[in-house]
């Protein structure tokens, strides 16, 4: 098991390297530079700036330099927010973004899975239709509509929660953003869970378990549910992509100081180290989460080890 795990993790490194290399190339081959938008920069100053950040060197040299820094955990300086290194910027924003993403994911799991199970058990009846309708609407509304709507109702009118902002150690500020981000995920999970549970409930082994007279609860809990969870586990990988893009909107709507803005603003500003730093963080998260999902999958389906 331990050997398998280390093997898997070592296997991620080449993928990560490819991702960094690709991102580096795309970024640097794109026209434009980090200092284009600064007015009144004399060619002299520009050249100095370029030299200061090593941008005057050849691309392979810069690439090698970047990788060397990466090995020591050094993401380089931010080109636009001059007083900060990329590491500092990410260290500021990441806890906020991770907390938000985790809260949203947990919320989605806690709501989506039971809802999907209920819909499958009452298939074709009122609770099923109700949940399906609700899930469909949650999936159809962009979060930049849902977020302000929630803020309007629960903050401006009812005054239950703060409209926006962030204060450390105050979970109240997290409630509305987490709901906004988690809602479409919960809806997706509920649909996934419903479909796969209906499938396993029809299977021969569930019929066989019923023929043993084990009782409805035991048949559902021991026999039908674990395999039905497999698609949910597979969704964990793509979920991170959703959380990252989604948190971009949610952080901006609710004014949270997360990392979401770095990627967009960084790319527009050609803040190369900042964008690359985000790519490394994001890529690692995606790969590790996919890896975890695979492991969990193996635990739920014993046949996977041998296939």
């Amino acid at each position: 098991m331990l050997r398998y795990l280390t093997g898997r993790i070592l296997g991620l490194l080449p993928t990560l390297l490819v991702i960094v290399t690709l991102s580096f190339l795309i970024l640097r081959l794109a026209p434009g530079g980090p200092f284009d938008q600064e007015q009144g920069l004399s060619p002299q100053v520009r050249a100095n700036l370029d030299r200061a950040y090593g941008l005057d060197q050849s691309l392979p040299v810069q690439y090698a330099h970047y990788l060397r820094g990466l090995l020591h955990g050094d993401f380089g300086p931010s080109l636009r927010q001059r007083d900060f290194t990329v590491r500092e910027l990410i260290a500021q924003g990441l806890p906020v973004s991770l907390t938000l993403g985790l809260a949203a994911l947990l919320l989605a799991l806690a709501v989506g899975i039971p809802a999907g199970i209920a819909a499958a058990l009452w298939q074709g009846r009122a609770p099923d239709h109700l949940l399906s309708g609700f899930a469909a609407c949650a999936l159809a509304l962009p979060s930049f509509v849902v977020g302000p709507l929630l803020a309007l109702v629960f903050a401006l009118h009812l005054h239950w929660l703060p409209v926006a902002g962030w204060q450390h150690g105050m979970p109240r500020y997290l409630v509305l953003p987490a709901i906004t981000l988690g809602l479409p995920m919960a809806a997706y999970l509920a649909r996934l869970m419903r479909a796969s549970l209906i499938e396993t409930l029809r299977s021969a082994y569930v019929r066989s378990a019923r023929a043993r007279g084990l009782g409805a609860a035991s048949v559902l809990w021991h026999h039908a549910l674990p395999p039905a969870l497999l698609p949910v586990v597979s969704y964990l990988g793509p979920a991170i992509a959703f959380v990252v893009t989604g948190s971009l909107v949610v952080e901006s709507v609710f004014g949270l100081p997360g990392t979401g803005r770095y990627l967009v603003q960084g790319a527009i500003d050609r803040d190369y180290p900042l964008v690359l730093g985000m790519v490394v963080v994001y890529g690692t998260l995606t790969l590790v989460l996919n890896c975890l999902a695979d492991l969990l999958y193996g635990a739920l389906d014993p046949a996977v080890h041998h296939a």
């Binding site: 569930v206 066989s208 389906d301």
Partner: peptide
């Protein structure tokens, strides 16, 4: 009861 296909009729996990 014993069913036709023991592979699909036994709970796999």
């Amino acid at each position: 009861m014993v069913f036709q296909d023991p592979m699909t009729s036994l709970t796999p996990h």
